[in-house]
């Protein structure tokens, strides 16, 4: 039953991705700037004929509806096209950059939850205490700080001043990591490369903190406010009246219920972690999808942008699906 519903939801992603792709297709072509012009802009002595040939190669000489048709029929065959600039299949480019982005998102998620869950719980339990006020002020700061600024400050302090963490990149190149999956932390564990593991983790710290700060702030606030409410509920009094120890009253009866609204927020944020990290990837020179798509947009590399946006849409929908499935476990009133 549940599996069938999940499958149904996965299949629904296909029209969603196509819809997104069509929109991106149209908007990219509405943006001023011709890809061939941009590509050739810096070169001297390119003849009009050569430019024309290039347009023909990319099908840019055809009317827009024909281009769209070609694009959609290719996509349905599983072909995302070839990058104008890099002359490499888009799917290949995306697959090469996606692990870095996912790894960073997981790092940020891990950091964000590790910080926000204890803080949210403690703030709710010790409502209006100094700890509560301080952490909620911190959370406010966390939401309002732009990530490029936070990233630069962290680099300045930890990398430049203290010199304890690397400035940028995913790994030191002298550790000789053999790539298996493209997830460096996983790869270094799989290949038993201790030096690579340390290096990969050290590189992950600052970008994860920067990217996860917003998530941490939002989750801490949501968890706190829902837990504050729940701790006043009758079933909490009942749990105490049963003779349950306070720790379990809070963790079992309180937090378990407070997780329901929290998971919703985390789910939405996971989408943002995957799709909203262009700034962080740029600041930390992180070779992920975000940076790839930014340069693709500047170059009017239509196929690459379309492919990347479809990937974002896919991850977003899947993240939401995971949340919905998790929800049915957390909240017995809800079925898929």
């Amino acid at each position: 039953m549940r599996a069938a519903k999940v499958l149904e939801r996965v299949l629904i992603t296909i029209p969603i991705m196509l819809g997104v792709a069509v929109m991106v297709f149209i908007f990219m072509r509405l943006t001023p700037g011709d890809p061939v012009d941009i590509m050739m802009g810096e070169m001297v002595g390119i003849s009009d004929a050569e430019m024309e040939a290039m347009r023909r190669e990319f099908n840019l000489d055809k009317p827009i509806h024909v281009q769209l048709w070609l694009f959609l029929t290719d996509v349905l065959r599983g072909d995302l096209g070839t990058s104008f600039v890099k002359r490499v299949p888009v799917a290949e480019l995306i697959l090469a950059h996606l692990p870095a982005t996912i790894e960073l998102a997981v790092g940020a998620l891990f950091f964000g939850l590790a910080i926000s869950i204890p803080i949210g719980i403690l703030s709710a339990v010790k409502q209006y205490s100094i700890l509560d006020r301080a952490s909620m002020a911190g959370a406010f700061l966390g939401v309002s700080m732009p990530s490029f600024w936070l990233g630069l400050i962290l680099i300045l302090f930890f990398s430049v001043k203290l010199g304890v963490l690397p400035v940028q990149g995913r790994i030191d190149h002298d550790v000789g990591l053999q790539e298996v999956t493209g997830f460096y932390v996983l790869d270094s564990i799989l290949t038993g490369n201790r030096a690579a593991l340390v290096s990969a983790l050290r590189h992950l710290v600052l970008p994860s903190v920067t990217l996860g700060a917003t998530l941490a702030a939002i989750v801490a606030r949501v968890l706190r406010s829902s837990l504050v409410e729940i701790l006043r509920a009758d079933y909490i009094t009942l749990a105490r009246a049963k003779g349950q120890v306070e720790f379990l009253v809070i963790m079992k009866h309180g937090v378990r219920n407070a997780l329901i609204p929290t998971v919703t927020v985390v789910g939405l944020q996971v989408g943002a972690l995957l799709g909203g990290n262009m700034v962080v990837e740029t600041v930390f020179g992180w070779p992920g999808l975000g940076r790839l798509v930014v340069s693709a947009i500047f170059n009017r590399d239509f196929p690459l942008v379309q492919g990347a946006v479809m990937t974002y849409a896919f991850t977003y929908v899947i993240a939401n699906l995971l949340v919905d499935v998790l929800y049915t476990y957390l909240n017995p009133k809800i079925t898929l």
């Binding site: 009758d234 079933y235 009094t237 009942l238 749990a239 009866h253 329901i260 909240n331 017995p332 009133k333």
Partner: peptide
Amino acid sequence: IAMIFQDPMTTLNPVFR
């Protein structure tokens, strides 16, 4: 000493059987 409450709808924890 055990206690029972006014509003049964809110006295049982909704997430446990």
